[in-house]
Design a binder for these strands. Structure first.
Lengths: 207, 207, 207, 207
DNA sequence: CTTTAACCGAGACGGTACGTCGCGTCTTGTA
DNA sequence: TACAAGACGCGACGTACCGTCTCGGTTAAAG
């Protein structure tokens, strides 16, 4: 009757626990059902939450799955294994381990597919999942330069372009091997791939 | 493609025109609506065909879209441009041109996503879309060996493994650049990528 | 592919049994739940029918309940009990018996309430429920005139107006007694009411 | 009307203005939306009040609307127009005028419909809306007896029964004419009805 | 040149999920 | 203790597609 909202917050605050429960439930549903049979009603039930609560926080299935999958990739890091080749092999295997998780396989490609017609979704995927991994390439290069395995950068523009290129090559090759060719990304493949990346086609493999 | 009226059977044969019309309608719907909003009822209407006719020939949306998209990739070939580098750049640009088509972008990734939980679908995608392109790698290598740009094969096992690896690297990198990073696969990128593939990281680009 | 719809009917015809089952299920739900807790989903389940089938045939809850209730009133008739007074008493008791059914009580008033803001619904109620009963008044009057209990009509306009008036008085009084005052419409009340209707207030009851 | 802060209670007292604002908002919403589309959240907003405040005072939509509608009928009275017939015609027209208000039409029948399955609601309607009007019948009869238009009462039981009967006949007929037959309750109809009520069917109208 | 079996269009059917809306309750901070 | 604000669990809404099932009508190869 008198009102006058004095400052920022009014009303009951959103439950922080709900977010956690919903994202976990989403991953569980991805494992059991896969992307296309996952329903938001089912996720809500698993999370012990009402469907409306879910819709209040995410615009739809796509956005929800992006967030759920992003948490899986957040743990990637670049351990120092002593040489550039060993560092690359290590990160390739880590990446492959994540792609072996059903919740990642099913969810990741589906949102990428959806993003071909939705610029906002594409941006969200890049911001939440892809960009945060690019530091791996930059760190790896800096470390290799420190070791003297790679020459220092001269042209900053070329430097950035090359980093992007390497990222696309590594990420693309691993994803294609794992999800399209459907063959294992194991230590053998990782070694072959790394040798190709470092030496190129014209320096023949020395198997 | 998938049906063919059984031999020596009485009764009215299936309309051949229907197959063509349905696949064309599917691609048109992919362009206008994208995978997730494409409905089989709508495809049937566009094709001037009853829903039953469609279901008599395809098991579902996934199988239909695989066939519709496969026809897009069937036209890829390896023109002889005089050098291994030029051949690779050429095929990369051709591949990118197909991935620029909305019906390919939207459909391809979606069926790959679905295939993460459906072995039969995965096999169908490989048989219809992926495997037919591998000859590009084999032809390119043979041609390069003839030219003396690459040494001849010694170990047949290593030879096959390397071909698979190169295929995953090329296809994966282009797809990742085009659909995930969402950056253009143009002549510049194609040249950078080919140089990396041929020379490797440790032979620095000479831009 | 060839088509040319030759004549009237195409496609699978609607199930006649479904209509019957749906209306019966509606009345059962009215008995158990009442108007406001009746849901179309529940009616569909009771009828062993999909919700879509129900919506294909009725625009909404209102229209459905009108049809379901109309069948209850369809059985009203005017038995010849020998005198105008006896005839009126008989029809009043019949009417009251229907209003004693929970499915009639709950449904009838609710759709009348809804109809106060929906001209189409109001017309449907009149056409399906109300108008079909007016012949009771006309038959009763004709019969009474034949018996010499009432004078023959002179002015056709006045005749119609009076019939409408009598209908409103009888129907209104019984409904009000049963549903608003919530008192029994039994033989005593029926007799009192009939005496008032025939003799008026100024000819005092001779109880 | 229904609440009243308990005596001798600590804490902030309930706002009296809120009750008024809520009931007015309810009537306004009945006019604009009708019973079935009226929502308590909307009423609260219109009244400038939180939903909790509303629920603290009324159990639900039914109770709220009964109170809102009751205020409309509270103003009915029996002006002395000189004769029994004129008095009846006057009260009939007054009653009809209220039933012409959208907030009364829509609200009244709806709560009556709801009351068919809710004894407490039925009692509330009678206590708040119906019973307070019965004095009109009693006053009218007394006045007519004073004038000599009607004989004095002899049997108190019969007297009460007749008053109830007349009330049901008048209220029922007017409601049926206005809401079901959906015809105007104007001076002509009022005169016809009054003549029938006073003289009965067998004393033919002298139009 | 007729069978006759499979085809075809249309569209109704039993389902499932959608995304929204209102309910009545609760949890905040402020008065 | 009341109050405004608004999140919450719940359940129904009406719609859209799914994949299946009648229908009546057609069409080409087999008899």
């Amino acid at each position: 009757m008198q009102s006058r909202t004095p400052v920022g917050r009014a009303g009951r605050p959103r439950s922080a626990a709900a977010d956690t429960a919903i994202l976990a439930a989403t991953r569980q549903a991805l494992v059991e059902l896969g992307w296309s049979k996952l329903t938001l009603g089912d996720v809500a039930t698993r999370a012990g939450v009402a469907k409306t609560t879910l819709y209040r926080r995410w615009a739809g299935k796509n956005e929800l799955v992006v967030d759920a999958v992003a948490e899986l990739f957040a743990e990637l890091e670049l351990p120092d294994r002593g040489s550039l080749a060993a560092d690359i092999e290590g990160v390739v295997l880590q990446f492959a381990a994540i792609l072996a998780l059903p919740e990642a396989r099913s969810g990741l490609m589906a949102v990428v597919a959806e993003s071909t017609r939705d610029e906002a979704l594409r941006a969200r995927i890049r911001a939440s999942i892809v960009e945060p991994q690019k530091h791996l390439v930059l760190e790896g290069r800096t470390r290799a330069q420190t070791r003297g395995e790679l020459p220092p950068e001269t042209d900053p523009d070329s430097s950035a372009r090359t980093a992007e290129l390497i990222f696309d090559v590594i990420a693309g090759a691993v994803v294609h091997r794992a999800l399209v060719s459907s063959e294992p990304v194991d230590m053998d493949w990782s070694r072959d791939f790394t040798r190709l990346l470092l030496n190129g086609l014209t320096s023949p493999p020395t198997t």
